[in-house]
Computed example of a mutant assay.
Amino acid sequence: MSIVTLVSGGLDSTLVACLAKEEGVHQYPLFVDYGQRARERELAACRTAMTRLGLPDPQVAELSGYGRLIRSGLTDTGLRVIEDAFTPGRNMLFLLTAAAHAMQMNADAVSIGLLHEDTSLFPDQTTAFLVDAEQMIERCMGRRIRVLAPLSMFHKHEVVELARSKGISGTYSCHLGGATPCMDCISCNEFKFKEN
C-alpha cells in the first residue's frame, strides 16, 4: 500500500506519518501552501520532521492564491486568528489536491490528521465529511482513493502522549506563524488540556 500523507509540520500530521512508517506503508509526503500565515515555520518544521522520520522531503503544493481569495484568520493578518479561523473548503482542498497527487503517483490512499469528531469545530472535520469526500474523490478521479484519518479516534491529550512515546519533537502548530507559539489560536489552545 502507498499513501499521500498530508503533512503540515504540526504534531498531528507528523504522528500520522510516523505511524504509517511504522506500518511499512510507502509514503509521499505532501505539504499544502494555501496562503497560511504560518507557512514558513510550518514548512521548515515539516521538512525537519520528514528528515527525522527518514521520509522523503515533502512535495509542496503551491496554492497560496486560495488564501488570498478565501480570507480567514489563518491567511489574513487583518482578521482575527480565533474568531475568524474557519477557512471554508480548506480540508476539501487538501484532500482533493492529495488525491490528484495520489493519482499521479499511483497511490492507494490519502491521509489527513483529523482528530476525534467531538473535538471538531468546523463541518470539514467530521466523519460524515470524510465519507463524502472519499465518494467525491472517487467521482472526480474515476477510481477509488481511500481517505484515511488514523487519528480520528484520538483526543489531543492522547495524541500528545503517543507522539511523546514515539520521540516526536520540534513540530510547529501555531496559526500565527511567530517564533514563539501564541498560545491563543485554536491550534495552540488544543494543547491546553486537563490530564484525565
Rank of each mutant, 00 (worst) to 15 (best):
S72F: 10
G177H: 12
L74C: 12
M105G: 03
T87M: 10
T87A: 12
A17S: 02
R143K: 15
R90G: 01
T119P: 09
F94G: 06
L74D: 05
E190W: 12
K194I: 07
V147N: 10
K156I: 00
L95F: 05
A45Q: 04
G113D: 08
Q104A: 14
R47Q: 10
R90W: 06
H157M: 13
D118E: 15
E134K: 03
A133Y: 08
V60Y: 08
H175G: 05
Y28D: 08
V110H: 02
Q125P: 07
G177Q: 04
G67M: 11
A38W: 01
K194V: 06
S173G: 13
R41E: 06
T180Q: 15
G167C: 08
M50N: 02
I137T: 04
R80I: 00
Q36A: 07
V81C: 11
K194P: 08
G67E: 05
E42F: 13
Y66D: 02
A44W: 08
T75A: 13
S8I: 01
L53D: 02
G170H: 04
I112H: 04
R80G: 13
V7Q: 03
A61Y: 10
K194S: 14
D57P: 06
A38T: 02
H101V: 13
Y172V: 05
G10E: 01
I186Y: 14
R52F: 00
A102D: 03
C18F: 12
G24Q: 02
V81D: 06
D33G: 10
S64A: 14
V60D: 01
T126D: 07
F31W: 06
F122S: 07
F191P: 04
L19S: 00
E134N: 10
A128W: 13
T126L: 03
T171K: 09
D84L: 04
A99Y: 01
C140R: 03
L55R: 07
L162I: 07
E42S: 05
V16Q: 00
R139N: 10
L55I: 00
D12N: 07
V110S: 11
P181V: 06
E161F: 12
S152F: 15
S187L: 11
T126G: 14
F193K: 00
K156W: 06
C185G: 11
R37K: 09
F31K: 00
L115N: 08
R39E: 02
R139M: 14
I186A: 15
H155Q: 07
L93A: 01
Q125K: 10
Q104D: 13
G170L: 11
A98G: 05
C188M: 03
R146V: 00
P58Q: 08
L74A: 12
C140A: 15
Y34T: 00
S120K: 11
A128Y: 09
D33R: 04
D76Y: 13
N189I: 00
